[in-house]
């Protein structure tokens, strides 16, 4: 197969593959938290609102010649800001949470599009982040990915039990005297970091597929959260790899190839599960 032949000689492809593994660790772990806490729409809001940060930093970099203003840094900062705003809304204004999350989603996109219109010659960077382009990844990016992965893994190991309680029963967490606000903000910030990592592969528009579908598939097969985390990472890796191979062989864009494979696998397994449940009910 041309993919494996190219992999031996093409540094871009090797970097892309390694990045896929690193991103899958973050995506698999934080996607599992999104699925069990039922906050996948919240991660959608984070991913879309970061267009504002990307647009602003592209504007700063090219119109105002601010060399430090890397669009990815803009994405990371705006993702964390959105996560904190959403977390604050969840804790303080629960009844209006849905509307406020949608407002943050639209506001970020609006700001991004306005700044992009001021820098019409450089919108390719915005476009790459919208649709993803894993062949972008450089050696320096891999080091950043590794550091962010280590941060996520360390936080999850340290706060594993506390995060689990917050996801399952927030009131119990309050009654145990846990720092619920701090832990919730930390959890959302880690999700925000994962979102920024994942958009490099699959892009903002399709990011939700890679964040939630491997975790949702893992939830079908596992009975314990720790097992779900591991399986979700493995599935995320496999879907990444197979999506990249399909895209390479068929000359399709990588992001949509990964999203299509993930969705097809999830829907097939879900239908099989439903069928099994119906058959077992009929036997009873």
């Amino acid at each position: 197969m041309t993919f494996f032949y190219s992999l031996l000689h093409n540094t871009f492809l090797q970097n892309a593959l390694l990045a896929g593994v690193l991103l899958s660790i973050a995506g698999g772990i934080m996607g599992s938290y999104c699925v069990v806490k039922k906050i996948t729409s919240l991660s959608g809001s984070i991913s879309h609102s970061i267009i504002g940060g990307i647009g602003l930093f592209i504007f700063l970099k090219y119109n105002l010649n601010q060399g430090w203003a890397d669009p990815l840094l803009g994405a990371l900062l705006s993702a964390i800001l959105s996560a904190l705003l959403i977390g604050f809304t969840h804790l303080k204004y629960k009844s209006n949470e849905d509307v406020i999350i949608s407002a943050i989603w639209s506001l970020g996109m609006a700001i991004g599009v306005i700044f992009a219109s001021f820098t019409p010659n450089y919108t390719v960077e915005l476009s790459n982040l919208l649709f993803g382009n894993i062949l972008w990844i450089t050696g320096a990016d891999l080091i950043i990915l590794l550091v962010l992965d280590l941060l996520i893994v360390a936080c999850v190991i340290i706060f594993y039990r506390k995060f689990l309680i917050i996801c399952f029963d927030e009131e119990l967490a309050i009654l145990q005297g846990l720092q619920v606000k701090t832990l919730y903000f930390l959890l959302l910030s880690l999700i925000a970091i994962s979102v920024v990592l994942l958009i490099q592969i699959i892009g903002i528009i399709l990011m939700l597929a890679l964040l939630t579908l491997p975790a949702a598939i893992a939830s079908i097969f596992t009975k314990k959260f720790s097992h779900m985390l591991l399986l979700s990472i493995i599935l995320c890796c496999l879907l990444n790899l197979s999506g990249t191979i399909v895209s390479y062989e068929l000359n399709w864009p990588p992001g949509p190839s990964i999203a299509l494979l993930s969705a097809a696998l999830y829907l097939t397994l879900l239908l099989k599960k439903k069928k099994k449940i119906i058959l077992s009910h009929r036997r009873e």
Binding site: V36, K38, L164, F168, E171, L172, F225
Partner: peptide, 30 residues
């Protein structure tokens, strides 16, 4: 806080949450 035990309404709990019975009980003490 920590000296009170609370049993919420069962209907408000997510029964699909992937934890075992033992893990559920262990959640009561951090």
């Amino acid at each position: 806080l920590g000296k009170l035990g609370y049993v919420p309404q069962m209907a408000n709990m997510d029964r699909d949450f992937p934890i075992s019975t033992l893990e559920l009980v262990m959640m009561g003490d951090t």
